[in-house]
């Protein structure tokens, strides 16, 4: 599983790389585009996702100590869905500005949609797997591996959040 996660890191690699390039060569455009992001929603979403990792970890612990992980798994799914819901709202409300952006700002939006979009796809897959686990909660199930995947998605977001939401907020 860890080998798979290493692959995933490098899958996100070019996106991060494009972002760093943009930050280095077009700092103003990136900062001003970043000001259009919804900080409150982004922060809320970060908190939600971090909490979902917490419930996921509790689910694993429950299954390892012979208790039913069901409740924790469903909570995790719920938090994941909440994240996607908020993200979806953000996407639609930012769309018109993104579509009319030009130059470096267009580049920022492109990266923003591509990177968080890829992240959202991963999360959706994660939600599907965790729901499947919760539906047929038996003990020999791969909760541990799924947990690793879920935490990985969380870690990716931990970096995406400051990258896209927190540029020069004081300006």
């Amino acid at each position: 599983m860890w080998a798979f996660l290493a692959t995933e890191v490098l899958f996100f690699g070019p996106l991060f790389f494009g972002y760093v390039h943009g930050r280095a060569f077009q700092p103003e455009a990136f900062a001003s585009a970043s000001h259009h992001m919804h900080v409150v929603l982004g922060t809320l979403n970060t908190a939600i996702l971090l909490t979902s990792s917490f419930t996921m970890a509790l689910g694993l612990r429950a299954s390892q100590t012979d208790r039913s992980p069901r409740l924790w798994l469903w909570l995790t799914v719920l938090l994941g869905l909440a994240f996607l819901g908020i993200k979806g709202y953000e996407y639609t409300s930012e769309w018109s500005e993104a579509a009319s952006a030009a130059g470096g700002e267009a580049r920022f939006y492109f990266l923003y949609y591509a990177t968080t979009g890829l992240h959202a796809v991963h999360l959706a897959i994660g939600i599907a797997i965790v729901s499947w686990l919760a539906l047929r909660a038996r003990r020999e199930m791969p909760i541990e591996v799924t947990g690793l995947y879920w935490h990985f998605i969380d870690i990716v977001w931990v970096f995406l959040y400051p990258m896209f939401y927190l540029l020069e907020r004081y300006g």
Binding site: R23, M56, H151, I155, V158, M163, L166, R169
Partner: peptide, 30 residues
């Protein structure tokens, strides 16, 4: 921290904290 003007150190702080968070998740949750 990102509302306090610190120039380049805003980025440093953000990334440092992100690394700390990632480390916490990796060490304890994972």
């Amino acid at each position: 921290s990102s509302y306090i003007p610190m120039g380049i150190f805003n980025t440093v702080a953000n990334m440092g904290i992100s690394c700390a968070k990632a480390l916490l998740i990796a060490l304890f949750f994972m």
